[in-house]
Every structure is written in structure tokens, then in C-alpha cells.
Amino acid sequence: MTSLLAVSDHVPSGRVPVEVLGEELGLTPMQVRIFRRYHGLGEVSRDEGGSLLDLLRGAAAGLVALRGREHLVRYVLHARSFPTVVPYPHDPVRELCAELGLDAGVPVFSVGHHACASGLLAIDAAGRLLAADGDPDALALVLAGEKAFTPEAAAVPGSSFFGEGAGACLVSASGGRDRVLAYAVDLRGEFDTVADRPELESEFQRIYGEALAAVVRAAVERAGLSLERVTAVLPHNVNRVAWHQVCRVLGYPRERVVLEHVPTVGHVFCADHFLNHRTARQRGLLRPGEPYVMAAAGAGRGATFAAMVLQH
């Protein structure tokens, strides 16, 4: 059964207030005020002058469990919010693998096109590759995190600002920690051209809370559980109001949704779950044997709603 042997994250120390970002992106002062007061966004993390490799290196450095197990890593997956994040054929993920001392023949690749829900896809895919190979000791390294290098990768229009950072986890097909119980995904390719069609943008905003709630409910039901037993929800850090709406739809207490990093870090692409995993552990929201949920909506050109139930 797919499990997470270890989870880590890296958030650089730099911060930029949303007012500064708003000016750079051409937003009106009213739009920025809505982001701060309504969506609960205050500042976002930035690694000025740093590279994608720097971000991913920071997350990998926190994976203490990797040390001494480098030879067991069979796959390395980079979960992408944006399909193209470096000039082809530059490959900072492979550079990182060399730094970490991983076998040069290990497949290193990206999975995505689920936007910010691609991190959950990467965990699921890694677990299935390992299970198919049948080696109980084998591991996969899943990495997430990107640079906010262009306006398109700096903000989710009307919803959020991206923060720079990264996350990493070691996936096993046989471990007993943070076991995956179920995964649900709802692809909504009809929103592919949302950036060019205002009527689709309105429709997307209208269905957002219901669709995200539905996929959480679907994953929990597939795991054979009831939502009352879920001790925490580790969200994507899109904004507070979207998750408050999801909580209303689900009837789930919002204090058990890890939203601490929305005002101070922003939406860290596919890495939010890794960052929020640490925070949930620190808050005591993850208890041995109890289930929790990681969930995300990926929006942009195409939309994906996804949720994964795990047992701590």
C-alpha cells in the first residue's frame, strides 16, 4: 500500500506584500484590498535570485530519511503546476539527483497537467510504479515546488498569489507511515479556455466550492470512512474564503483545515500539502492511526479537483 516514509518542505525567508505584487501585476488597489481582507492573503514567499534547483534542494535537505537510502530510490517525480518551468533541455531535477547521490540510471521525470493538484497525482503514480516493480524496499522521491517566474505563474486570477517554496516526500509501496487509503480526482477540461472566456471564469468560480467538497467526500467514502473521523484537512493554500466555503458545504470544522500559511506564504504551487503536513504534525492534528485528507483544486487553463485520504 502506498505510504509516505518521510515528508519535508522548504520555504525561503523572503516575503513580498500582496500590495507590491498587485502593482507589478497591474491590479487595482480595490482588487488588492479584496485579496488581503476577503481572501486572507498578506504576503508571499520569494527566493530572490534563487533558482528552482535551490528550492528543490532545500526541500530534499529536510528528508533525513533519505540519507543512507539513496540506493533504494527507483523513481524521481517532479509534480508540476505549470508544465514548462525551465528552458528545454535544462533539467535541474536531474542535477539535484546527482547532488543527492542517486543512481544515474533512475528515471527522473515530471508528472502534471493537473495544475496544483499534480502533487497528489505524483504520490499516487509513484506508489503504483513501486507496487508494479514488486521490490518492498524500493522508494520514490516526489518533489514539488516552482518559481513564480512570470505573471502567469505569479497569481491565480481573482483567487491567489503563488509563493515560492518546495516540498518533498519519500514514497514506499510497503511502508506503514502515512498510508494512502484512497484518491479521488475530477478533471474538468471544459475550463481549458477559461483565461480567454469570462463566462467560463464565472462558471468556474460558481462550481469551485461544491466541486472541491465533492471530491473530498468521494475520497473519504471510497476509503470506507465518514468525514467525522477525518482529523485534519491539508489544503492547497489558495485562500481562506474558498476553504471556508468548502467547510460549509461539507459541514467540516474550519479550525481543522490547515490555513496558517495562506496569509504569510501564499499558494506554493504543488508543495502546499508538504508544508501543511509539517504544520499539522506540529499542531497535533495528525494522530497515529487516524485518517486525514490532502486536497487541492488546480486552476488555470484546465481545472482539476483532487483529494487523497491518508492514515497517519
Binding site: 508544465p83 521525470f109 502534471g112 497537467h113 493537473h114 495544475a115 480526482v185 478533471l187 474538468r188 481549458d192
Partner: peptide, 19 residues
């Protein structure tokens, strides 16, 4: 994601790149 919408059956769809 778009292809999952246009392909018969509405498949789970994703991309593998950068290898």
C-alpha cells in the same frame, strides 16, 4: 486535462514529461 474532456470515456488523464 483538456484531452480527458474530449476523449470518449472521460479518462483519468495526465502528462509525463522532462525525461
Amino acid at each position: 486535462c483538456r484531452l480527458g474532456h474530449v476523449c470518449p470515456g472521460g479518462p483519468l488523464s495526465f502528462a509525463v514529461t522532462d525525461q
